[in-house]
């Protein structure tokens, strides 16, 4: 039984280390995953949290803190224009390439299963659960 769990955990860790790090430290919630996928598909988008929430079909009260965290993590860039806070995808080529690798990897079901596992683990850790 313990051996099976170990094998499963080992299988879950079998991801490109760069993508594993991305999932553990930056794209560590499902909202952030949605946002990253949206910006990957629409890389020139520049908009407010309200409108971005509308585009991905989520509540702005949930999306806004995630946008702030993605900005702190260097995935997005933010600027204030008049009284509007505008978010865009980072211009950093390395991060853009990493996001591209992540979204492409998501085409593979096995990768998605592993990614979901890591996001759930991150969410549990955030809530202080084992």
């Amino acid at each position: 039984m313990a051996d099976d769990q170990d094998a499963a955990a080992q299988w879950m860790e079998d991801i490109d280390p760069r993508l594993l790090d991305l999932l553990r430290t930056r794209v560590n919630t499902f909202i952030k995953w949605d946002v990253v996928r949206f910006f990957h598909a629409n890389p020139h988008t520049a908009d407010t949290a309200d409108n971005l929430a509308r585009y991905i079909g989520r509540d702005v009260r949930v999306v806004e803190p995630e946008l702030r965290q993605l900005t702190q993590a260097g995935v997005l860039e933010a600027e204030t224009l008049a009284d509007l806070r505008i978010y865009t995808l980072t211009a950093d080529a390395g991060t853009a390439s990493l996001i591209d690798s992540f979204v492409r990897a998501c085409d593979d079901r096995q990768f998605r299963v592993k990614a979901i596992y890591h996001v759930i683990r991150s969410l549990r850790r955030e809530k202080g659960q084992p």
Binding site: N42, A46, T48, N51, L81, L84, T88
Partner: peptide, 21 residues
């Protein structure tokens, strides 16, 4: 070509400044 998704409020704020997006 650049297909830019944005909103009217962001567009107006952007074109009002110099060297906007």
């Amino acid at each position: 070509l650049c297909v830019l998704q944005t909103s009217p409020e962001v567009t107006l704020a952007d074109v009002r400044r110099t060297s906007g997006r």
